[in-house]
Design a protein around this nucleic acid. Sequence first.
DNA 1: AGGTTAATTAACCATATAGTTAAATATAAA
DNA 2: TTTATATTTAACTATATGGTTAATTAACCT
Lengths: 121, 121
Amino acid sequence: MMQDTLSLTFSALSDPTRRAMLARLSKGEANVSDLAKPFLKDMSLPAITKHLKVLEKAGLITKSREAQWRPCRINGEPLKNVSDWMEQYRVFWEESFDRLDAYLKTVTKKDLKEKKHGRKK
Amino acid sequence: MMQDTLSLTFSALSDPTRRAMLARLSKGEANVSDLAKPFLKDMSLPAITKHLKVLEKAGLITKSREAQWRPCRINGEPLKNVSDWMEQYRVFWEESFDRLDAYLKTVTKKDLKEKKHGRKK
DNA sequence: AGGTTAATTAACCATATAGTTAAATATAAA
DNA sequence: TTTATATTTAACTATATGGTTAATTAACCT
């Protein structure tokens, strides 16, 4: 079972169908059948409803009512929490480039030496 | 089933135990029993092993061997992918609510116009 | 009222996930 | 060689997840 909001958000984002729905909603409001259209060859409408429920429970979208349609809108707030959580780790992917760079420089130097002295390892 | 790397990463991050392990590893290398210690009142060691396997398969940590210990290190690369994915949504949490609201209303108006003049898309 | 469109709910199924206990493996140390 | 420590694997269980089809609800349109 999952109670904390960050887990709920990450879990909702861990599905490509749901991420595609968010991507669509980032271009503007859309109702359920609009959102379903790209996926109806792969899955049924009830499956879509379920995915939307997951997004809704995570607070990533909101649904309203307009006649028989349910227009959905993206809500970025939970993504703010993800972004805040990510910040503490930024150094670990920016640093890796430095290390790779340093490593490549080392290898190059070593290689040059090896060539000169005809030695390996 | 989950094949794409982004889904794998989000899924690995959707558990508070695993995020706590990452937080611990962000302070430096640690072996399995170090990582387990804060959780042994809540779960068994095999449960810890499984969580670490999830993190490892997502590429978020690497494990090496040192005598009977398995020192683990964080690997930030998958988080870079998450960060890149997140960028397209930054506008939805970072801009003022008024501006975001205005933006969404614009998109909605366009959609309504399209509806008025007949078919969408 | 009857029919159409939009979306959800119910009931069900298969697989994945997160945990358990008990046994096994790997290495060090006595 | 035995024992202790660190960790994993095996076998199992319960619940969650992601899908299905069939039925249902809700609102609109003649």
